[in-house]
């Protein structure tokens, strides 16, 4: 669960017509963002619903860095106002994951950043971004040998020699 800290109403920007949220990253950076932008995040939406129940304003503390948080905000800003099927909690999940060109460019980042973004998107419950990150990772290993997959994604081979060479059908996990 996130840490929630009460915030003095008078100090929070956003009083008035425009509703703003204060997001606090793990490196203690304070980022003010319009609630509308972050409404794609189920996690944030639930937090905001909680605020409304208590009629108090809060900062939302997030367990990832401002660098990652800013990337997520950039994603949400790009799709502000767009309907994406994956993010509709009432819609059936799409049969095949859509490939969005902008997402491919947006996620053209190094492996570590990609993994940080997918974890953040997962935490924030932004299914469309999780899907696009997962596709980007899947694309990285497409057509690669087992050894190449390990190398690309930094996975350690922790099989015993017997396990490694046993056919998969013998492996029951």
């Amino acid at each position: 669960m996130p840490t929630i800290v009460s915030v003095d109403d008078s100090t929070v920007p956003g009083e008035g017509s425009s509703r703003l949220l204060l997001l606090v990253s793990s490196d203690n950076k304070h980022i003010v963002v319009e609630e509308d932008i972050m409404s794609r995040s189920r996690f944030i939406s639930k937090q905001v619903e909680g605020f409304e129940a208590t009629s108090q304003r809060h900062a939302i503390l997030l367990p990832f860095s401002s660098f990652v948080l800013n990337k997520v905000i950039e994603y949400c800003s790009h799709y502000r106002g767009y309907y994406l099927l994956e993010d509709d909690p009432d819609a059936a999940p799409p049969g095949r994951s859509p490939v969005r060109e902008w997402d491919q460019e947006f996620l053209d980042v190094d492996r570590n950043m990609l993994l940080r973004i997918i974890k953040a998107a997962h935490y924030l419950e932004i299914k469309s971004l999780v899907g696009s990150c997962a596709r980007a990772i899947a694309d990285m290993i497409r057509g690669k040998t087992t050894e190449e997959m390990r190398e690309i994604l930094g996975v350690e081979n922790d099989f015993t020699p017997e396990e490694e060479h046993s056919p998969s059908s013998k492996c029951t996990g």
Binding site: T3, V24, S26, N28, L61, N112, L115, K119, A120, V155
Partner: peptide
């Protein structure tokens, strides 16, 4: 207080690896 709390809860404080993905 936030800084100390978050530093222990952070999901990206260490070098990420795919093995740490849920």
């Amino acid at each position: 207080p936030l800084h100390s709390e978050l530093s222990t809860n952070s999901i990206d404080h260490a070098l990420p690896t795919i093995s740490r993905l849920p």
